[in-house]
Design a protein around this nucleic acid. Structure first.
Length: 260
DNA sequence: GTTGAGCGTT
């Protein structure tokens, strides 16, 4: 979602992303673009939206072509009132390592306090968790954040080479699920469908909703497979999990930088 | 119709 009609992110190799916080929920990229474009070459303006409702989350990303211009935009637009909201402009520090250059430029221009944001962020997040939970809107964000954190923690704590514990646990879970389904198949099927649809990322904005609600979920005709008949010694009991020995060469979790 | 700390898309 950018101003340039592109699908994915543009050339991020030489861009400097700014994070614009505290913008109004009605503010769109079209409103931010001319504002930021006055201080430099804006490559892209992106406003993350909610996957379900499609509403803005209240912050935006503005990509500049040059760091000094980005810094100028920060110096000029940080604290300004846009659409009735006091916006906050700062460098984004999640994507790209161009921030180092940006920081250099910033240091040369003006020395500001460091960024002890981790503690502050946690505090604020907990503070607003209550009000957000009521509407149930940040579940998606929380999910991805937890997933990321867990992944990092796992890679640091446990070695990614072997994990017999994982396999065993997964097998146990699968076995339990299968048994449950076998016990009451009809009800379980309906619930499974609902959960699957909820978990799947449709990423369809309400504005782009096509009028074709055709069903595309052919229920996999799972044979009853009377286990009392052909099960017992012919088929191994662990048919659910397939032995995949080619699981050692996984990609490194922290191999992002290395080629650029 | 609401909300207000935060870190992003094919």
């Amino acid at each position: 979602m950018s101003h340039f009609g592109r699908s994915g992110p543009p050339d991020i190799r030489d861009t400097f992303s700014l994070l614009v916080l505290n913008i109004s929920f009605r503010t769109t990229a079209d409103d931010l673009y001319p504002l930021f474009e006055r201080y430099g070459k804006v490559v892209d303006v992106f406003i993350p939206r909610d996957r379900r409702s499609g509403d803005s989350r209240g912050f935006a990303f503005v990509r500049y072509k040059y760091a000094d211009e980005a810094q100028k935009a920060i110096d000029r637009l940080d604290g300004r009132t846009v659409d009735g909201r006091n916006i906050m402009v700062q460098f984004a520090n999640r994507r790209g390592r161009v921030i180092e250059d940006a920081e250099k430029s910033r240091d040369r221009s003006r020395s500001r306090s460091p960024r002890p944001r981790h503690r502050d962020r946690d505090h604020r997040k907990r503070s607003r968790s209550r009000s957000r939970e009521r509407h149930g809107r940040d579940r998606d964000r929380d999910y991805r954040r937890r997933s990321k954190s867990r992944s990092r923690s796992r890679s640091r704590s446990r070695s990614p080479s072997s994990s017999p514990d994982h396999k065993s646990r997964r097998r146990a879970r699968d076995d339990g699920k299968r048994k449950s389904r076998s016990k009451s198949r009809s009800r379980s099927k309906s619930r499974s469908r609902s959960r699957s649809r909820s978990r799947s990322y449709h990423s369809a904005s309400p504005a782009r909703r096509s009028a074709s609600p055709r069903k595309k979920s052919p229920p996999p005709k799972r044979s009853p497979t009377p286990e009392k008949h052909t099960n017992g010694k012919d088929l191994p009991p662990s048919r659910s999990v397939s032995p995949s020995p080619k699981r050692a060469g996984s990609r490194s979790p922290v191999g992002s930088d290395g080629k650029e």
